Simulated scan of single mutants.
Amino acid sequence: MLKIHPALAADATTRPVLVTGAAGLVGVPLVRALRRGGHTVVAVDDGSAGTLGRLAEFLPDDGVHVVIADVRDGISLTSLMREARPWAVAHLAAKHFIPECEAAPGAALDVNVLGTQRILDACAVAPPKRFLFASTADVYATDDAPHAETSLVAPRGVYGTSKLTGEHLLRDQAHRLGISGVVVARLFNVYGPGDPHPHLIPEILRQVTAGETRLSLGDLSSARDYVFVDDVADMLSSFLASTVTGIFNVGTGVATTGYHLVRLIGDVVGRNLVTEVDPARVRQVERKTLCAAPDRLVSAVGHPATSLRDGLAATLAATTVVPTPAGVTG
């Protein structure tokens, strides 16, 4: 186990936050947001998603300590918690790409359920004041209407089931551990720079940045609530800094179909994008609509600030777009 920098350990003035999954899509922007808020950060990741290099930006920062560790390694986590004694924990680490979870359910449950229990076990040696658990909108029952936090939960797949189990573990054990401030953030469809998985937006952008104007995609008729990753990070940081507790949907309240996404991205890059269905990309089980009712979120920390078009433009700006040859319109 790496030694924690003295400035990060048990310093109430900087309110240290331990972030698991710190190299992930949400993890890196959350570390940035926490640093802007004056927190020191212990950034934990095992590198299994191939994104560990994203943490390199924090190496010159004495306020961030990077630790390579697996959330299933209870001995290492307990040692880390005892040494760092964080004021708060943000538990983001998970297997969350649904096709991978469905293909290897045991591995998903191992990380998402056992890993969460290991984090809770480690908290027993130095209970944090605040604990944020990144859950998912996939816990909700299928319904075309926007989901409130009180909506029926009935996940249909292993990912949603694993996250709902994590919520139950936290709910049932927080009081025993002496954690007084618990927030469960049910994330809707988060997008932005740095997503290593072929979700719909990254896949569209991958094909567009390769110069394609005819895109091979799956079912574009389903609608999702897309929320920009920097907005998500700011809201998670705000949850930790506040005194709010409970379950919060993190979404915009607007559902957008895949067809509309393609049109928006085409507008941003100045191309007429044509789509065709690749049967291999069509999921066997697919919700038609998944959208948040974000009223509780707005009351607690505000509404996501970034429009979908601006968020897509910012995501594209982080990549290299291949110009369309003269005279080619799709």
Rank of each mutant, 00 (worst) to 15 (best):
I75T: 15
I75R: 15
S76Q: 14
L77C: 03
L77Y: 10
L77Q: 09
L77W: 10
T78A: 13
T78N: 01
S79M: 08
S79L: 10
M81C: 13
E83I: 01
A84G: 06
A84N: 02
V89C: 10
V89L: 09
H91I: 00
L92Y: 09
A94W: 01
K95M: 14
H96D: 09
H96P: 05
F97Y: 11
F97G: 00
I98W: 08
I98N: 14
P99E: 06
C101K: 02
A103Y: 10
A103E: 13
A104M: 09
A107C: 08
L109W: 13
L109Y: 11
D110F: 12
D110H: 14
D110T: 08
V111M: 08
V111H: 07
V113R: 04
V113P: 08
L114M: 15
L114W: 13
G115H: 11
T116H: 02
Q117I: 06
R118D: 08
R118M: 12
I119C: 09
I119S: 03
I119T: 04
L120C: 01
D121R: 01
A122M: 07
A122D: 06
A122G: 04
C123V: 01
A124N: 05
V125I: 13
P127K: 02
P127L: 05
P127C: 07
P127Q: 04
P128G: 09
P128T: 10
P128M: 05
P128F: 05
